[in-house]
Design a protein around this nucleic acid. Structure first.
Lengths: 149, 149
DNA sequence: ACGACCAATGTTATAATGTAACGCTCAAAT
DNA sequence: ATTTGAGCGTTACATTATAACATTGGTCGT
């Protein structure tokens, strides 16, 4: 999806929900969408500074915080990167698969049965899970040891 | 379990496995075990410096790396803390529940069926999961909004 | 015993990530 | 018209982590 169209769509959604997609926030989201890859806050900062050289870290972090809170992006904890959420009908996070070797990230879909089971196990410890804010570590297809034939 | 006994047990295990639990590594593990709570690398450093004032960050990070690699401790990615793995029969990580409010952490047990299902979903994306290196975000019992009766 | 080797550690310096605190502005609410 | 509060600018700093190189100390082959 073209970034401009995507931003427009997010903008519409924000109007509906009475959220303010300010120019800063839109710019940060656009940068993440255009790259479509996990970026560090300072990667985003560097991009922003192309447009507005005086931008400082808190500006970026504040925008990221807003975008995370409303599920437009996800914070990848294990690599300190930020990624646009793959969107189906609505804006929501997805469980992430993190390759511990090459650090690549894939968004995963879990069945609703499986989500219920996870809720159940978490509930045994008194926890209520945020929907789909999970990270799983493993090895991606390219980083798995090859079979010797 | 008393820390001295625990360290002894780890030491025995390391001998069996031909791993070297050096004094540094043992000291770091003992600190984490004694506190039995998620500690930052610099918390550990401060403790170590009580015993050996000239200790520097790389010493701690190297010990942590060893301890993580062999599953004696886990790195909590979302809070940059380190925690002794709860041990059943063997040394292995556990899925973690992280409270996004108070940052408390609980180790969770999943059924083996559930683990298989997770492997299945990850496999659809070509991923092979490391056993139980998962983090789930949610709210712990104390941080959940109360029902108004 | 001797030296070659290698893993672990010591040491210096710095990189990368994230935040506290304060003040300004501007639009919305009263 | 004032008040209020969210968003942002700015300074300074805190926290987390690592690169790079020197040193030590034990193990192995000869």
């Amino acid at each position: 999806m073209i970034t401009a169209n995507y931003i427009q769509r997010v903008n519409d959604y924000c109007h509906q929900q009475k959220l303010k997609l300010t120019p800063n926030r839109a710019a940060v989201l656009a940068i993440l969408h255009k790259q479509n890859a996990p970026l560090s806050a300072y990667d985003v900062l560097a991009e922003l500074q192309q447009q507005q050289p005086k931008t400082k870290p808190p500006t970026v972090y504040r925008a990221l915080e807003f975008l995370i809170q409303h599920h437009f992006i996800q914070h990848i904890e294990s690599t300190s990167r930020y990624l646009v959420s793959q969107q189906q009908e609505s804006f929501a996070p997805h469980p992430l698969l993190i390759c511990t070797d090459c650090k690549s990230v894939t968004q995963m879909n879990l069945s609703s049965e499986l989500k219920l089971e996870l809720d159940h196990f978490a509930g045994q410890q008194g926890f209520s899970l945020h929907p789909q804010s999970y990270e799983f570590q493993g090895l991606c297809a390219s980083c798995q040891p090859r079979q010797s034939a």
